[in-house]
Amino acid sequence: MLKNRPDRYGPVAVTIHWLTAILILAALGSGFQADQAADAATRAGFLRLHIPVAITVLLLTLFRIVWWWRFDRKPIPVEGSRPWQERFARFVHVAFYVVILGMVASGIGMMVLSDAGPSIFGGSGVLPDFHDYPPRVPHGIGAFLLVILLVAHIGAAFYHHFIRRDELIRRMWYGA
Rank of each mutant, 00 (worst) to 15 (best):
V53S: 04
W69F: 15
R43D: 05
R64E: 03
R82F: 10
R70M: 12
V53N: 03
T61Q: 10
V78S: 07
W68K: 14
V98H: 09
T42L: 09
K74T: 15
M103Y: 00
D39L: 04
P83E: 09
A38W: 13
L59C: 13
S81R: 13
M110V: 04
V98I: 12
R82Q: 14
L59W: 13
S106R: 01
M110W: 00
W84M: 14
L113K: 11
W69G: 14
I65M: 10
W67C: 07
S30I: 00
V66I: 13
I55F: 10
D72Y: 07
M103A: 01
D72C: 07
I108P: 03
A116F: 07
H50R: 03
A37W: 02
S30P: 04
A44T: 05
E86N: 15
A95N: 10
H50Q: 06
S114P: 00
A41C: 08
F91C: 13
I55A: 09
Q33S: 11
P52C: 02
I108C: 04
V99R: 06
L59R: 12
V104T: 05
A34E: 00
M103P: 04
R64Q: 03
E79P: 12
D35R: 11
A37C: 00
V99T: 06
A95Y: 08
V94A: 10
A41P: 06
L59P: 03
A34I: 02
V112R: 12
E79C: 13
R87G: 15
D72R: 02
E86F: 09
D115M: 10
K74M: 15
V94K: 11
V98C: 07
G102C: 07
G107W: 04
W67F: 08
F91D: 13
M111E: 12
I100V: 08
R82L: 13
P52M: 02
M110L: 09
G80P: 01
D39S: 07
Q36I: 14
R70H: 14
S81W: 10
W67D: 05
Q85P: 11
F46N: 01
L58I: 08
G31W: 01
D35C: 08
M110F: 06
R73N: 11
F32C: 02
G29Q: 01
D35V: 10
W84Y: 14
W69P: 13
P75E: 09
S30M: 01
A41W: 07
K74R: 15
V66L: 12
I100P: 02
E86P: 11
L47H: 05
A34W: 04
R82Y: 12
R64S: 02
E86V: 14
L60A: 04
V53Y: 03
D115S: 11
E79A: 15
D72I: 05
G45R: 06
G109N: 05
V53M: 01
H93K: 08
Q33H: 11
L62R: 00
V94I: 13
Q33Y: 12
K74V: 15
R90F: 14
T56D: 07
P83K: 07
V99N: 04
W68V: 12
